[in-house]
Amino acid sequence: MKVVAVVGSIRRGNTLKMVQASCSRFSSDEIDIIDLGNIKFSYCTGCLYCDETQQCCIDDDLSKLMGKVAEADAYIFASPVRWSLLSGEMKTFIDRLNPFATIGTLSGKKCILLTVGQSEKESEDAFSIDEGLKSMEFFCENAGIEVVDKVKAYGCLSETDISDSAYLEMCYTAADRLRSSLL
């Protein structure tokens, strides 16, 4: 079993902690972590080269990791959410997956989705975190990736708000469900 976890935040805070909690349910040889904050990669240019060739024409750090993405059985996608939007890093990563999505490389794979934001769960703007998650769900649906579980963490303003919270327990549970679905 091979799982690729994608950290869609350049900060070393709550998103990273959620991914670390989820990854702890897998052995080190089962998991590869792509930390988008630690690699240099470019935006999709919309050139449509990938529609014709099923390959991205951009050669950067991310393109060197795409083999791991293609070979994985499952994914952990994690992003902070602001204004109902995923982080720019996660959005760019998803855009760069287009060559795989168009030819079915991702179809039949599984994932868990993790989002975190500062809106309180019962606030009038809590929908923002929900909408960010829907964006990832929509991508997965179109790429043929089965969403096994999802975690939405609310009320996380400081980088340590998620530490020792019930949200980490939810990440453990989601990762356990992903593991079970792969066995």
Rank of each mutant, 00 (worst) to 15 (best):
Met90Phe: 04
Leu178Gly: 06
Ala174Ile: 07
Val151Ile: 08
Asp51Ala: 03
Ile129Gln: 04
Leu65Thr: 04
Phe127Gln: 06
Leu85Cys: 11
Met66Pro: 09
Arg96Phe: 04
Asn98Pro: 00
Asp149Leu: 01
Asp32Val: 06
Thr92Lys: 07
Thr102Phe: 06
Tyr49Lys: 15
Ile112Ala: 03
Ala166Ile: 12
Asp149Phe: 04
Cys50Gly: 11
Gly8Glu: 08
Asp32Phe: 02
Asp73Val: 05
Arg12Cys: 00
Leu36Ser: 11
Met170Trp: 04
Ser119Trp: 11
Cys57Ile: 15
Met136Trp: 10
Gly155Cys: 10
Gly155Ile: 02
Lys109Ala: 05
Tyr167Trp: 04
Asn14Ile: 06
Asp125Val: 12
Ser87Val: 09
Tyr75Gly: 00
Thr115Cys: 10
Gln55Lys: 15
Glu141Thr: 14
Leu97Asn: 02
Trp83His: 07
Ala21Trp: 01
Gly108Phe: 10
Ser135Cys: 13
Phe127His: 09
Leu183Ser: 10
Gly67Cys: 01
Lys40Glu: 03
Cys44His: 07
Ile112Leu: 06
Gly8Arg: 06
Glu122Arg: 13
Leu65Met: 12
Met90Lys: 13
Ala101Thr: 05
Asp95Trp: 14
Ser128Ala: 07
Phe127Tyr: 15
Ser24His: 12
Ala175Ser: 15
Leu65Gly: 05
Ser87His: 11
Ala166Trp: 14
Gln55Trp: 09
Leu157Gln: 08
Arg82Gln: 08
Cys156Thr: 08
Thr115Lys: 10
Leu62Trp: 01
Ala143Met: 02
Phe139Tyr: 09
Gly104Thr: 09
Lys64Asp: 03
Lys17Cys: 00
Leu65Phe: 04
Thr45Ser: 14
Cys47Trp: 12
Leu97Ser: 05
Met90Gly: 10
Asp161Phe: 06
Tyr75Met: 01
Cys57Gln: 12
Leu114His: 09
Ile162Glu: 04
Asp176Met: 00
Ser27Pro: 11
Met18Trp: 13
Ala175Trp: 00
Gly132Pro: 07
Ala166Leu: 15
Cys23Ser: 15
Tyr154Pro: 01
Gly8Ser: 08
Cys171Ile: 03
Asp125Thr: 15
Ser181Trp: 10
Thr15Phe: 12
Lys40Ser: 06
Leu97Lys: 05
Asp161Asn: 09
Leu62Tyr: 00
Glu30Asp: 01
Gly8Thr: 11
Ser42Tyr: 13
Ser165Ile: 05
Glu169Gly: 12
Asp130Asn: 14
Glu137His: 14
